[in-house]
Amino acid sequence: TTVHLNGVTYTFPNPEEARKFVEKLAKTLNLKVEVHNGTYHIE
């Protein structure tokens, strides 16, 4: 599972880890999250 954040790409072997990371980040920084083909894009 891949996460794109400010031009940096993070790869998680575990989709659940990626989801938790994204949710925590989005909540902390009040960001918008979009998912395209299983890839998270955070703005």
Rank of each mutant, 00 (worst) to 15 (best):
T1N: 10
T1L: 06
T1G: 12
T1D: 06
T1I: 06
T2F: 12
T2I: 13
V3N: 00
V3S: 00
V3P: 00
H4A: 06
H4K: 11
H4R: 11
L5V: 12
L5Y: 15
L5A: 04
N6H: 13
N6V: 06
G7M: 06
G7A: 05
G7F: 07
V8A: 10
V8H: 11
V8K: 11
T9M: 12
T9W: 11
T9Q: 11
T9H: 09
Y10C: 15
Y10R: 05
Y10K: 05
T11N: 09
T11R: 12
F12D: 00
F12A: 00
F12C: 14
F12M: 01
F12Y: 02
P13E: 10
N14H: 07
N14P: 01
N14I: 05
N14T: 10
N14W: 04
N14C: 15
E16G: 08
E16P: 03
E16A: 09
E16W: 06
E17W: 12
E17A: 13
E17V: 11
A18E: 00
A18C: 14
A18Y: 01
A18L: 04
R19F: 09
R19G: 05
R19I: 11
R19L: 12
K20Y: 08
K20C: 15
F21Y: 05
F21E: 01
F21A: 02
F21P: 00
V22N: 00
V22E: 00
E23D: 08
E23A: 07
E23C: 15
E23R: 05
K24V: 13
K24N: 12
K24C: 15
L25Q: 01
L25S: 01
L25R: 01
A26D: 07
A26F: 05
A26N: 06
K27Q: 09
K27S: 06
K27E: 12
K27D: 06
K27N: 08
K27A: 10
T28F: 14
T28G: 07
T28L: 14
T28M: 13
T28W: 13
L29R: 08
N30I: 06
N30T: 03
N30E: 08
L31M: 08
L31N: 02
L31K: 03
V33L: 05
V33N: 00
V33T: 01
E34Q: 09
E34N: 06
V35Q: 04
V35Y: 14
V35H: 03
V35T: 03
H36W: 06
H36N: 04
N37H: 04
N37Q: 04
N37I: 02
N37E: 07
N37G: 06
G38K: 02
G38T: 02
G38Y: 02
G38M: 02
T39Y: 08
T39M: 13
T39D: 14
T39V: 15
T39E: 15
Y40I: 14
Y40H: 04
H41W: 15
H41Q: 05
H41T: 07
H41E: 08
I42D: 04
I42T: 04
I42N: 03
I42G: 03
E43P: 02
E43R: 07
